[in-house]
Computed example of a mutant assay.
Amino acid sequence: MATSLSGRTAAFLVLGSAWATGAAAQDEPRRTRVAAGPQFVPRYPGAKGVVVRPFLDFSRARGNEPFRFEAADESAGLPLLNASGFSFGPAIGFEGARRTRDVRGVPSVGFTVEAGGFAQYQFAAPVRARVELRQGIGGHKGLIGMAALDYVARDRDEWLFSIGPRVTYSNGKYQRAYFGVPVESVATSGLPAFRPSGGVQAVGANAGYLMQFTPRWGVYAYGKYDRLVDDAADSPVVRRYGARDQWSGGLSLTYTFGVRD
């Protein structure tokens, strides 16, 4: 059964508490922005259709500083070092299950916790680069990562627009879980045997928009497109049951706590 939470959403639930605890130690007043709404995401990597899942976000800022930019498609992370525009730290994500009924005759893939890290660099405004690498614990048991470059235009917290390219990469174990057809499954699935070797999985782009209507209320939306390439695109599983074009998007209402009247 597919998880009801997106990777970013579930990761927010895990790391948000730790982040808030660390922030509370600061002397300056903090503002907290919470976003909640629906999003449409592929049921599993390579799926043809989308499912509705919660779209949640959590941000903290000190005093009158603007909230730190975070793209909607990045994993939740806790920066351990943030100096001269460079930061890195742990990242966590989750991937939903692919059920037997989703792809007939091919082994299912269980719910996966993905633990790893991120590194990012803020070039001279408005460009930011970020890379992630996460290891699957259970489920697909493979490595999955993303490289992103974002152009960010903003007027402090009044509005923010971001857009940029994405490259998703994964190893052979990950791709064999979602895109492979084992020899022993040929008879039951009716698909030809296929053993992907890993590499670049998809290329695409992500765009986001955030606007404040009042100092407390606002709206946050994003849209993302990925195109499966190489072994993932050639997979018999994708050709029969899935789609090379992967779309996702979400819309949420935001509320900011700690705003001074």
Rank of each mutant, 00 (worst) to 15 (best):
Gly37Pro: 05
Pro38Tyr: 05
Pro38Asn: 05
Gln39Gly: 11
Gln39Thr: 08
Gln39Arg: 06
Phe40Arg: 10
Phe40Asp: 07
Phe40Lys: 05
Val41Lys: 06
Val41Ala: 12
Val41Glu: 12
Pro42Trp: 02
Arg43Ala: 14
Arg43Ile: 07
Arg43Gln: 11
Arg43Asn: 06
Arg43Val: 10
Arg43Trp: 00
Arg43Leu: 04
Tyr44Trp: 08
Tyr44Val: 00
Tyr44Ser: 01
Tyr44Gly: 02
Gly46Asn: 01
Gly46Phe: 02
Ala47Ile: 00
Ala47Tyr: 02
Lys48Asn: 13
Lys48Ile: 01
Gly49Asn: 08
Gly49Tyr: 00
Gly49Trp: 01
Gly49Glu: 08
Val50Glu: 11
Val50Thr: 15
Val50Asp: 10
Val52Ser: 13
Val52Arg: 07
Val52Gln: 09
Val52His: 03
Val52Tyr: 00
Arg53Pro: 04
Arg53Thr: 13
Arg53Gln: 15
Pro54Arg: 00
Pro54Tyr: 03
Pro54Ile: 03
Pro54Asp: 07
Phe55Ser: 07
Phe55Gln: 05
Phe55His: 11
Phe55Glu: 06
Phe55Cys: 01
Leu56Gln: 05
Leu56Tyr: 06
Leu56Arg: 03
Leu56Lys: 03
Asp57His: 08
Asp57Leu: 00
Phe58Asp: 11
Ser59Tyr: 09
Ser59Ala: 15
Ser59Ile: 00
Arg60Ile: 15
Ala61Thr: 14
Arg62Tyr: 10
Arg62Thr: 15
Arg62Gln: 13
Gly63Val: 13
Gly63Arg: 11
Asn64Cys: 07
Asn64Thr: 14
Asn64Phe: 09
Asn64Glu: 14
Glu65Phe: 08
Glu65Ser: 12
Glu65Ala: 15
Glu65Gln: 14
Pro66His: 10
Pro66Glu: 09
Pro66Gly: 07
Pro66Ile: 10
Pro66Gln: 08
Pro66Cys: 10
Phe67Pro: 10
Phe67Met: 10
Arg68Thr: 15
Arg68Ala: 15
Arg68Glu: 15
Phe69Cys: 06
Phe69Asp: 01
Phe69Met: 01
Phe69Gln: 02
Phe69Ala: 07
Glu70Phe: 01
Glu70Thr: 10
Glu70Asp: 13
Ala71Lys: 00
Ala71Gln: 07
Ala71His: 01
Ala71Leu: 04
Ala71Ser: 13
Ala71Pro: 12
Ala72Lys: 06
Asp73Asn: 15
Ser75Pro: 10
Ser75Gln: 10
Ala76Asn: 08
Ala76Ile: 08
Ala76Cys: 07
Gly77Tyr: 08
Leu78Lys: 09
Leu78Phe: 14
Pro79His: 04
Leu80His: 05
Leu80Ser: 07
Leu80Val: 07
Leu80Phe: 09
Leu80Pro: 07
Leu81Tyr: 13
Leu81Met: 12
Asn82Trp: 05
Asn82Gly: 10
Ala83Asp: 13
Ala83Arg: 15
Ser84Pro: 00
Ser84Asn: 14
Gly85Pro: 05
Phe86Asn: 03
Phe86Arg: 04
Phe86Leu: 15
Phe86Lys: 04
Phe86Cys: 03
Ser87Leu: 00
Ser87Thr: 04
Ser87Tyr: 09
Ser87Pro: 05
Phe88Arg: 03
Phe88Thr: 13
Phe88Leu: 14
Phe88Tyr: 13
Gly89Gln: 03
Gly89Arg: 01
Pro90Asp: 09
Pro90Gln: 04
Pro90Cys: 04
Gly93Val: 08
Gly93Cys: 08
Phe94His: 09
Phe94Cys: 09
Glu95Thr: 12
Glu95Ser: 14
Gly96Ile: 03
Gly96Ala: 11
Gly96Lys: 02
Gly96Leu: 03
